[in-house]
């Protein structure tokens, strides 16, 4: 994997959340999905900065969605690109390969 294709832990979470949310992957929804599944309460700024960084790397693409209500604001929805999917798959598979046969809690047998 090239240097620019490494994914941080939070970047992996964000990509997974975007994949889960499919067409509804807006910043706040991504934040809520991460909080719901991991209990990690992140700031919207951190989520947004990560989404944009991944988009700039070519791992996400975005579309600007017109507001539902007249007084609302245009929002940005994200989707994982083919490259993003491949990089995420490689990162997750590397983790699971490293995890194989490793006793996570010394002193207890791995379940």
């Amino acid at each position: 994997m090239a240097k620019g294709e490494w994914l941080g832990e939070f970047e992996q979470m964000v990509l997974l959340a975007v994949l889960r949310l499919e067409d509804n992957a807006y910043g706040m929804e991504v934040r809520r999905e991460i909080a719901l599944r991991t209990g990690r309460d992140t700031a919207i700024g951190a989520v947004y900065a990560t989404l944009e960084r991944l988009r700039e790397k070519g791992f996400l693409r975005c579309r600007d969605v017109a507001p539902e209500r007249e007084s609302g604001r245009q929002r940005r929805a994200y989707r994982v690109t083919a490259v993003g999917g491949r990089v995420l798959e490689q990162a997750l598979s590397a983790i699971s390969k490293m995890r194989e046969g490793v006793q996570l809690r010394p002193g207890k047998a791995e379940s």
């Binding site: 706040m28 609302g72 604001r73 929002r75 940005r76």
Partner: peptide
Amino acid sequence: LLRLTCSTSDWQWLLAELETEY
């Protein structure tokens, strides 16, 4: 406070997220 730290292009998207949720 938030506007101080955002670029103009980031601001519109971040504000949209915060305002919608709020």
